[in-house]
Amino acid sequence: MKGTKRSNATDWVDHVRRIRDRQDQQAFRELFEHFAPRVKGFVMRGGTDAAFAEECAQDVMATLWRKAHLFDPSRASVSTWVFTIARNRKIDLIRKQRRPEPEDLTWGPEAEPDQADVLGLQQETEELGRAIAALPEKQRNLIEKAYFGDLSHSEIAEQTGLPLGTIKSRIRLALDRLRHAMK
């Protein structure tokens, strides 16, 4: 799934804005083609069959359309936003739990965010992606298992120290930027 023409994260921000501003179906098509298979893969990694995962991915993309006005690109990349929607849907459908969400985190920008903040954050995320991709396979697998739900939380507690340590500086950078963006 790598090397597609539309891999630029800032480009996806623009797509979400087109949906928000003029319900642009072409923008949705392109977002769907990129993200729906990824959401499907994410859900299937949790051990569900393809048909169910596909239904889930459709739901997630419909939510993206409905909530486009709540997306704040100075706080998260589009991939991260899609990830959080998919994660919540998975908890909802597969684990049959409610998902308590914190009070102010509505993803709702009060004003149009500063373009430099948006650009910086989107680039930061791409760099984080590259840093994760560059990890030794064993460590990357562990992180993937933790995020895709194949490990119980006590297993994660036992095992995450190592891989998190190796990408710690990258996370610190991301943290600083995110903190700055949220002030």
């Binding site: 990349s77 899609v82 990830f83 998919a86 930061e124 992606g129 994760i132 992180i143 995110l178």
Partner: peptide
């Protein structure tokens, strides 16, 4: 963000 980056891979 890590979750978002991983999503891009699968």
């Amino acid at each position: 963000e890590i979750g978002g980056a991983l999503l891009e891979e699968a």
